[in-house]
Design a protein around this nucleic acid. Sequence first.
RNA 1: GUCCUAGUAGCUCAGCUGGAUAGAGCAACAGCCUUCUAAGCUGUAGGUCGCAGGUUCGAAUCCUGCCUGGGACGCCA
Length: 555
Amino acid sequence: MNIVQQTEEKLKEEIAQSVLKAELATEDQLPSIVLEQPKEKAHGDYATNIAMQLAKIAKKAPRQIAEDIIAQFDRSKASIKDIEIAGPGFINFFMDNQYLTNLIPTILEEGENYGSSQVGNGEKIQVEFVSANPTGDLHLGHARGASVGDALCNVLAKAGYDVQREYYINDAGNQIANLATSVQARYMQALGKDWPMPEDGYHGQDIINLGKQLAEEHQDSLEDKPEEERLAFFRQYGLKYELEKLEKDLADFRVTFDHWFSETSLYEDGKIQPALDTLKDKGYIYDEDGATWFRSTDFGDDKDRVLIKNDGTYTYLTPDIAYHKNKLDRGFETLINIWGADHHGYIPRMKAAIQALGYESDTLEVEIIQMVNLFQNGERVKMSKRTGKAVTLRELMEEVGIDAMRYFFVMRSSDSHLDFDMDLAKSESNENPVYYVQYAHARICTMLKQAEEKGFTDEGYNGALLTSEKEEDLLKKLGEFTQVVEEAAVKRMPHRITQYIFDLASNLHSFYNAEKVLDADDEERTKARIALMRAVKTTIANGMQLIGVSAPEKM
RNA sequence: GUCCUAGUAGCUCAGCUGGAUAGAGCAACAGCCUUCUAAGCUGUAGGUCGCAGGUUCGAAUCCUGCCUGGGACGCCA
């Protein structure tokens, strides 16, 4: 807990004590104390609505209750400068913000660990994300999922969760058979044969390239092999090629996984039948119309689901249940799946499965990533998965850069649609929020570099000299970081981080324009400000690290 | 038709556990570079929070209904 959190706790505790001393409520009746930061500075640094909440219990007017509380309040307990009653009964606290300067040594000491906490309490949590089929290039939606997933994992880890990042490879089933026939068609075409693409084939450029590559390596030697053997080869070759490409694309996008889990391994390791048996033993399975069904309606799904089709093969759901059982068997307390919007209808049946396996519904959390619409030259870029005409992650990385993508994709809450404006993301102008934040960091680096050149240091600085309004604003913002990370983790909202670093950058720019840091005429103030700048630099960099955006030294 | 999700400034979006006069950015308008990076800063203007009810001291936030956009509703994955 940093100094800000400690102070807030003390303040809450003192409020609670005052209520009890004033005999406005008993300990049992006491609601949890809500401390908020008013938007208006005139309303103080903190405010509480406790008097309004107690109106019913104490049977008094809120303003009178507030008076009673203040009469009992020991303001020496929590750096209070002034207290006032306002509006319908708010109690506003004005702090002696000098205590905030204690943040600076804390931040400088903790360095890249500043912002860490233990709210996660070591909870074992697994985040499965991207998990795109190995049948084509990653596109925009995957890029958003990758950005959000990676940022969420970073945030969770910083908040004290024990996080594992996993990618589920759909390397069994129809889509891989289609991959094999698609590769075959492209190979034959590369040899100059008139070979049609299969009905459900993958039309991406990557498969075309793969076909050419195979034609060069093997000439026409594959052509003569028996079809079964040939397809097995294309399947295995295509899978390897696609997986390596996926991993490379993601790594270049600064997203890596702890574990790549193969669907096929579920079959090879015999994990499917035990999962089915578990459901069967618990009585959630029945046969009808020649198929085997899961009674998911027992858990609120709107219809039961087929597990084994009447042709004897599994539906997609069946290995997925086995997969989730496997995750739970590995000891994860919480599973987070990050899915594209088109899968959201799938949530009830998966949650039903989790419950049927004997776990709480909340054990599985599904974060839905809404669609991304790409805009270029003011127009929406149409995309079609069928024809393979889609902008790929790779292309976008090359065209707009990783930093802008990572920032843009995490910038919005993931349950709302995102309009990705390529021109904006590419523009090196004040319209682009990524540069705004990076510029703040670079500015500080420049100042620190010049400080060094001019012989200024922050050695023996006196934090008490940081008293201007802009300095206080910066200090207050710095103190919020840990809580922002905690909240982003607990609420699974990594976009809070982008908001925070944008605000912090804004405070920095504002300070920069109002005050001069390196001032030969005031060495003591310069020292204090250098220390402050170092603390801001550290905090901005830590925030950017969480969302996978680089913090440049100069721009 | 059923379910999910969204609807907030001209545009793109925030808005915490229900709190005070609903906030940013962009665009618009008016200013600020002999001084550490103007990729910046300061100010002005801009709103029936989709609509209608309800819950209460108090609603953008919670509940119900309706309207609109997107998505999902398969023995596909």
